[in-house]
């Protein structure tokens, strides 16, 4: 590695630390101005309770359980969203048929869907269903757009040269889809964390970040509430980071 890239890295880390310090400072100032721990607890108290949390075995079990729910929900919406999206992208009648459903899902308040889902599913499955349902239209829409944006000139070329449909699909359609998929997955994952935790707050699964949020609120334990919220933010960022890495690896341009 060249020296300049090392200094670049150090600068980057330094800048990140400074920015973090600035915002923690802002938080602390707000805390001092408000002067009530219940409304805005001190950053240090929150970090303390976060530290206490991560040392328990239960914390990791809870994080794991919530993570699995998010992942299952996103996986299902990915599989169904891509398959249905491809069909709808290729056939404008299917598109016309499904589009209103997607519009309805997208504009229905999450809370209404959560409440209905509480009736339909067991508590642990509600968050899974909610993250699936919220991500599905995003992935579907992006897949449809991807299919509709496939370069027609390449398709004509493949047609003239009598290329097998399987190869056209694998070597033209699928790679054209990947940039749309990547964008969709990043948006979907971020959203999935938020709606899934919201669903957990209302459905109280036995091990769930949302259930912990609910309990801390019930006991007016603001530091723990904030600590769990920080956990969700961090998990969401970590997921996005890992996904961005994977996406780079899977990009159709192998370099």
């Amino acid at each position: 590695m060249r020296a300049s890239t090392i200094t670049d890295k150090i600068m980057k880390v330094l800048r990140l630390l400074l920015i973090t310090a600035f915002w923690v400072g802002v938080w602390q100032v707000v805390h001092l101005i408000i002067g009530r721990d219940i409304y805005v607890p001190s950053a240090f108290v929150v970090f303390d309770s976060l530290q206490d949390l991560v040392q328990t075995r239960e914390f990791w079990e809870i994080v794991y359980a919530s993570m699995v729910r998010v992942l299952i929900g996103v996986m299902i919406s990915f599989l169904l969203g891509v398959s249905f999206g491809i069909i709808a992208g290729l056939n404008k009648w299917v598109y016309a048929l499904f589009n209103p459903l997607m519009v309805v899902i997208k504009s229905t308040p999450v809370i209404s869907i959560i409440i209905v889902a509480l009736v339909w599913f067991t508590s642990s499955n509600v968050p899974v269903f909610i993250s699936f349902l919220m991500c599905f239209p995003i992935i579907w829409t992006n897949t449809v757009t991807g299919i509709q944006n496939v370069d027609q000139k390449l398709l004509q070329m493949a047609k003239v040269y009598q290329v097998h449909r399987r190869d056209v699909f694998l070597k033209i359609y699928l790679p054209s889809l990947t940039p749309f998929m990547n964008a969709a997955m990043i948006t979907a994952l971020g959203l999935a964390w938020k709606v899934s935790v919201a669903a957990e707050v209302l459905s109280h699964p036995r091990k769930a970040i949302g259930s912990e949020l609910y309990t801390s609120k019930a006991y007016l334990d603001s530091p723990t509430l904030f600590a769990w919220t920080l956990v969700v933010v961090m998990l969401s960022l970590i997921f996005e980071f890992v996904l961005a890495r994977l996406v780079k690896k899977w990009s159709p341009y192998r370099r």
Partner: peptide, 19 residues
């Protein structure tokens, strides 16, 4: 009309594949 994510060779192979 070359496929951007295939190499030169793969672009040519694309049309001669097993028929």
């Amino acid at each position: 009309r070359l496929i951007p994510w295939l190499t030169v060779r793969e672009n040519i192979e694309f049309v001669v594949g097993e028929k």
